[in-house]
Design a protein around this nucleic acid. Structure first.
Lengths: 146, 146
DNA sequence: TTCAATCGTTTACGAGTGTAAACTATAAAT
DNA sequence: ATTTATAGTTTACACTCGTAAACGATTGAA
């Protein structure tokens, strides 16, 4: 239903193009041979779909096509994480992020950066987050407790 | 390809069952009427798929079925977030979590909790996270810099 | 100029998903 | 006992996704 999501397989293509662009389909194919068993046509299909979705732009360099990203990695990550967080009760977003944090290997710098962001957010954070769930989809009491 | 993922529509069902169980299909249907336009058969199809995937268990209470979760919400969230984080370079996991944090509304308690976890992780966190990408899928130099 | 390599495009096809009608079995009511 | 409401199961169908072969156009080589 969501408009123009990047599927997992398509994501592999995007990562290559985000890293190097402009880039041709064959170059993308060669890079991905290290990781996947995709045949050339498979790679091309995925590229074609990304172009159709508006995720890649094409330039006709000479007589070949070259591809470049039409969206940034950060934007795409944001859309993906947004979609994920929409699936949980707004009061559980914090716990969800905590789960990710627990299971991730992060560098000292990452942690410092995160900590600083948290410090910043504390200044304006509410005491409690309002629940926005349909009654029955979470344990939050909606009517002010019974 | 991934084994037994919970799709977005199925997730709606799971949230209801996680909140209240055991619960019948009609009860699930009624609760979701508040949020979706699903017909009863649609709800039943989704429930059936979840049972087949092993996400829900059934008890024959009297002569009706009642459903209960076979996996916890936390487990499911973990699997979802794991899948998400596998799509980015391991060195960018921190930034990804940062994006989520930036765009989320969190309570003071959430932030305090997160901060404590970060404090804890700092004790064992590496100075840098190793990149595990296929060459060409991220900007990390793999050969020790050129 | 003709052939072979290489592009991108079109077509294909099975699995999963969103959505739902049709069907079957059974239990409760009359 | 027969009807009716309800439960779960089967079937359906269009769309997306993963995977890839086939096709048509173009170009560089012979």
């Amino acid at each position: 239903m969501k408009e123009n999501q990047i599927s997992p397989a398509e994501w592999e293509i995007m990562r290559v193009v985000w890293t190097t662009h402009p880039i041709t389909s064959t170059e993308i194919y060669n890079i991905l041979q290290e990781k996947t068993n995709w045949k050339l046509p498979t790679t091309k299909t995925l590229i074609g779909r990304l172009v159709k979705k508006g995720m890649l732009t094409t330039q006709t360099k000479g007589r070949k096509y070259e591809y470049s990203p039409a969206v940034t990695e950060k934007q795409s990550i944001k859309e993906t994480t947004d979609a994920l967080l929409e699936q949980v009760c707004s009061t559980k977003v914090g716990q969800t992020i905590e789960v990710m944090l627990e299971n991730s290997v992060l560098s000292q710098d990452d942690l410092a950066s995160l900590e600083q962001l948290i410090e910043e957010k504390k200044k304006t954070a509410p005491e409690v987050v309002a629940c926005n769930c349909t009654p029955g989809q979470c344990d939050c009491r909606h009517e002010g407790g019974k």
